[in-house]
């Protein structure tokens, strides 16, 4: 029961925070919708954990909890890969910028 309450409270906090960020124009509408839907699902699972068992049975997985772990691991791995790709792209952009500055501004010839 305690864990369910914690999950609901945390999810509500996450949704409230993303809405606040949206109102400050720090995140896009797309991001706030995706993020909110994700946390609403978490609240739904916290309120009706037995529902995941039915979905798990439909998906051919033993228990609802197992299904959630599989989904979470898959999602996290995908997210890590996407972050790595994005970080790599950003790193390449920084290098290109640093290179352009270096090539366009060679150190002045010291004739003294």
């Amino acid at each position: 029961m305690m864990f369910q309450l914690f999950l609901i409270a945390f999810s509500a906090y996450a949704i409230a925070r993303s809405l606040k960020q949206y109102s400050r124009k720090q995140v896009s509408k797309y991001w706030v919708v995706v993020w909110s839907v994700l946390w609403v699902i978490v609240i739904g699972v916290a309120l009706m954990p037995q529902a995941t068992d039915r979905i798990a049975a439909f998906a051919g997985v033993g228990r609802g909890a197992d299904l959630l772990v599989y989904l979470a691991v898959t999602f996290l791995l995908y997210a890590v890969l996407r972050l790595m790709v994005r970080q790599q792209k950003m790193s390449e952009e920084i290098t290109a910028l640093v290179r352009t500055i270096a090539v366009d501004h060679p150190k002045h010839h010291d004739r003294s």
Binding site: I94, V98, R99, A102, H105, P106, K107, H109, D110
Partner: peptide
Amino acid sequence: IPSTDRVIVLRHIL
């Protein structure tokens, strides 16, 4: 290290 006649020094700011 300064640039000279035959040595051009480029600097990466990072």
